[in-house]
């Protein structure tokens, strides 16, 4: 039985793992901001190269990165296919009477590059982090405690729910269930989902009971162990300067 994990186990260098998780989160935010400000092709390619460099430097596992990128690329394919035909501008070529414009192609390329750069950087900077650490980082950045707790609970129980789902699936398979395109399949999946919902509900009630047993009265306590060091300031400054480089290139070459 495979177990479910939100984290792709990165082989991150120890200096990187020792950083305050907020540094990594903030670096990712600045990277995204920089990507959003870029609209010229070559600076965007430079940013994508930067993201690739980060991925290599921080020792990510390519198999996992590619697997996660593919899920994202499925969405990107639609953008690349439709944008050239829907953006008005100078016509470039025509397929079956529909004209593709230069502007549309460029716009599709920009979105493709920007999206991939951001996703790669996020996977390298945040995706390699223990999800719990991400929760601490969010709390440390002043995100409302209720939202952080919601996130922490999700992290805690998504695996438990996944296991429950797997057990039900195995039980179905053990009784010779094979998914097909028929009414029986849909009904069975309906039962599976319904059962999962009922069980989640019951588990939620048991958890809430257990919390009340330990004196829970609506107040959550987060013993946040994040500490900002001087090296975090240094790394974040360096990262922000690095991420600003393509932006400066764009301003210098193409204006605002």
């Amino acid at each position: 039985m495979t177990s479910f994990s939100l984290q792709h186990q990165a082989l991150e260098p120890s200096w990187f793992a020792a950083l305050d998780p907020r540094t990594r989160l903030l670096a990712a935010v600045f990277f995204t901001l920089s990507a959003l400000c870029l609209s010229a092709l070559w600076p965007l390619i430079a940013l994508l190269a930067l993201a690739l460099l980060l991925t290599i430097l921080l020792g990510c596992q390519w198999r996992l990165i590619i697997k996660r990128l593919l899920a994202f690329e499925g969405f990107m394919v639609l953008v690349v296919l439709f944008l050239p035909f829907t953006v008005a501008g100078k016509p470039w070529f025509a397929i079956a009477g529909m004209e593709a414009s230069y502007q549309g192609v460029i716009q599709a390329l920009v979105i493709l590059l920007r999206g991939n750069a951001v996703v790669l950087a996020l996977l390298a900077l945040v995706g390699s982090m223990e999800p719990v650490k991400l929760g601490y980082a969010l709390a440390g950045l002043g995100i409302p405690e209720k939202l952080v707790q919601l996130f922490m609970m999700t992290v805690r129980y998504i695996g438990v729910l996944f296991d429950e789902h797997q057990r039900l699936r195995t039980a179905m398979k053990a009784r010779a269930f094979v998914a097909g395109s028929n009414w029986h399949t849909w009904r069975s999946y309906g039962h599976l989902l319904g059962m999962l919902l009922v069980r989640s509900m019951e588990r939620a009630q048991r958890i809430s009971g257990a919390m009340r047993c330990r004196g829970f009265n609506g107040k959550f306590h987060l013993l946040t162990p994040v500490k900002w060091h001087r090296r975090d300031t240094a790394v974040l400054t360096l990262a922000v300067l690095l991420f600003l480089l393509p932006l400066e290139w764009q301003w210098w070459q193409y204006g605002f």
Binding site: M153, R206, I207, H221
Partner: peptide, 15 residues
Amino acid sequence: DDQLFCPTVLEDVAF
């Protein structure tokens, strides 16, 4: 699994 809901062991025991 019903009883342990905090991210880390220490937090759970301190709850």
